[in-house]
């Protein structure tokens, strides 16, 4: 049988931020259409992993590489990774004075046929009032997340990195965000193919809205174990992260 190349493959990845090593020899593979969840305590390196995959320059790869569809993207700038099909929902995206949300959604969708798609997106995410405002300038937590989702739905990436999609969002907004995430991760809504995802979550609340295939626990910059996401969450809830990685659930 022919080997299937994973959509995203992380090989032996070590990363430094401001000369401090945060990730240690991380290995991870996400196949096309798979949704993975990354769990871990604060400071374990979850956001660092996402930002390194996206290519943010403050995150320096000291060893290993990142492959996307078999191509080594480790030296690539952010925009080229995005063009290849990597999208990211930032946990705390910056406000950009002077750039309107409408503009950013438009460029994310590369302009093509955006007008029609835009109206649907705006309606579904209740963004009407925000379209002609500066991106994230004075937006509430929920508005910021909805704005992120609209940009990503326009971009339609092959894999989306979600950094704490439920943080700073009330229950009503989590449902809307969850719906948008499902649109990104299921076939037929955004694109023909099924989108892949890597979701960083601290609380796991978002898993009430989104189905994930595989869960990973990141502890002190190392991938400690993987398993069924809901089982992992339950174990962490009961015994904490340290016990979780020691338990027999791993690698089941």
């Amino acid at each position: 049988m022919e080997d299937v190349i994973p959509l995203l493959e992380i090989e032996d990845l070590s990363v430094e931020v401001e000369e401090r090593q945060v990730l240690f020899s991380v290995n991870l593979a996400i196949g096309a259409g798979e949704t993975h969840v990354l769990l871990g305590p604060n400071g374990s390196g979850k956001t660092t992993l996402l930002n390194t995959i996206m290519g943010l320059p403050a995150y320096r790869v000291t060893s290993g590489r990142i492959l996307f569809g078999g191509t080594d993207i480790t030296p690539m700038p952010i925009d080229e990774r995005a063009k290849l099909g990597i999208g990211m929902a930032f946990q705390r995206p910056p406000a950009v004075r002077g750039v309107k949300l409408r503009q950013l959604i438009h460029v994310a969708g590369d302009g093509g046929g955006m007008e029609e798609r835009l109206s649907g997106l705006v309606r579904n995410l209740d963004l009407d009032r925000l379209m002609d405002r500066d991106v994230n300038m004075g937006f509430s937590g929920g508005e910021t997340k909805r704005s992120e989702m609209a940009q990503l739905l326009a971009q339609a990436p092959a894999i989306t990195l979600f950094d704490e999609p439920e943080s700073g969002v009330d229950l009503d907004n989590i449902a809307v965000v969850g719906e948008a995430m499902n649109a990104l991760l299921k076939p037929g809504t955004v694109a023909e193919r099924k989108g892949a995802g890597l979701i960083v979550t601290h609380t796991g609340h978002i898993l009430e809205y989104v189905n994930a295939d595989v869960g990973h626990v990141l502890l002190n910059g190392k991938l400690a174990c993987q398993g069924n996401p809901l089982d992992l969450l339950e174990e962490i809830g009961r015994s904490g992260y340290q016990k979780c990685v020691e338990c027999a659930l791993c690698d089941q």
Binding site: D79, F90, V99, V107
Partner: peptide
């Protein structure tokens, strides 16, 4: 970087 993450060159 935020805008670049939407596929826009620097």
């Amino acid at each position: 970087h935020y805008i670049m993450a939407r596929g826009v060159p620097k």
